[in-house]
Amino acid sequence: MKSLFLAVAIVLAAAMPSEAEVTGHEVNYMAGDTLLKGYIAVNDRIDGKRPGVLVVHEWWGLNEYARERARMLAELGYTALAVDMYGQGQTADHPREAGQFAMEVRKNLPLAKERFSAALAMLQQHPSVAADQIAAIGYCFGGSVVLEMARAGLDINGVASFHGSLATDNPAQPGAVNARVRVYNGEDDPMVTGEEIAAFKTEMETAGVDYRFVNYPGAIHSFTNPAADEAGKRFDLPLAYHAEADARSWQDLQEFFNEIFR
């Protein structure tokens, strides 16, 4: 399964110069008294400052999938920080544990904001990053996190959610959202209902947010992750990889970044 993901990553990055050299390493930072263990990826062949991108992990925690997405962004010319929203680099092997980790953060917006802001500050301070050019992307749990950070008014250029939850207890308020918003959703995802989609669109429009919602026919939850098929079968969950939706959403993300960082 890992080899399939790496093959997809190579195809998606094919437009990059062959001399691109990406390095990645773990980084420690603090949010209050909590040690957070992130992963930063940088393209060493690019001189000068460039936009930075935060990558927020799925409910499994900061695993290899989030790290690989950070490296793919570095191949495109960004400096990317895969963030740790659970603390101590914790990851889950079972949906029950993953759900507990995710709910602790989802139910505590001040905690989520503190941990996200700590990662944001670290990325902005990196010598390769233009501090005023920042975006955040997230997958599943991470998608819901970046949407909440946009709703909370964090001063970043844009956020993009991939198969993330749209529901919120803190709806966007008119004039409060600074980031432009993109949502990439599986049209057949049973975890995101039509009612939730309608409510999200109404929320965004009422708040005057610059947003775009994209549905991918035939795609369900975790459509960007090649490991989703195995996890879906193992835990009897509606998860499945969808190569076309993965490729199309990644291309749309690149176009989105070209718009917000020009």
Rank of each mutant, 00 (worst) to 15 (best):
D132Q: 11
P95I: 10
A121T: 13
E148H: 06
T91G: 06
V129L: 10
L166Y: 07
Q173P: 04
E64A: 14
S128D: 14
V183M: 15
A66V: 09
G138P: 04
I46Q: 10
F162H: 05
W60K: 10
A130K: 14
A118W: 10
R96P: 00
V181Y: 03
E148C: 00
G89T: 09
A135F: 11
A179F: 03
L123Y: 12
L54E: 06
V55F: 03
L147T: 03
I46V: 15
E97G: 00
H57I: 05
A150D: 01
G164L: 03
G158P: 00
V55K: 08
V56C: 13
E104R: 13
V181I: 07
A118S: 15
A131L: 04
T91E: 05
A152F: 00
G138S: 07
L111Q: 11
A136S: 15
D44E: 05
N170F: 12
G164M: 05
E114Q: 15
A92N: 12
L81N: 09
Q173Y: 03
F162L: 02
L123A: 06
A121I: 03
R45I: 05
I137V: 15
H126N: 15
N108F: 02
D169G: 04
R69W: 11
W59M: 15
G77D: 10
A80D: 06
R106W: 08
V53K: 07
S117T: 15
L147P: 04
L166P: 14
P51G: 02
I137Y: 05
H163T: 07
N157C: 10
R106M: 06
A121K: 15
A70N: 10
A119W: 12
A136N: 13
L76K: 15
A130I: 08
A150Y: 06
L73I: 06
A118T: 06
T168V: 02
T168M: 13
N170V: 12
I46W: 01
L111M: 15
H126S: 02
P171F: 02
V146K: 05
R71W: 08
G77K: 09
I46Y: 00
A98V: 00
A130F: 00
A80V: 10
V145T: 09
A136R: 10
Y139T: 07
K113L: 11
V181W: 01
D84Y: 11
A176M: 11
Y65S: 04
Y78H: 12
R182H: 05
N178D: 03
P51N: 07
D47P: 02
V83P: 07
V177D: 07
D93T: 13
N170I: 06
A176F: 01
M103Y: 04
G158K: 03
D169T: 07
N63H: 04
P171M: 08
D132G: 02
W59I: 12
D155R: 09
K49S: 05
S128F: 02
Q88Y: 13
E114V: 00
L154D: 07
P171N: 13
T79G: 08
I134M: 05
P51H: 03
D169Q: 09
H94M: 09
V56D: 03
V105R: 08
L81S: 12
W60T: 07
Q90I: 11
N178S: 11
E68D: 13
E104C: 02
A176P: 02
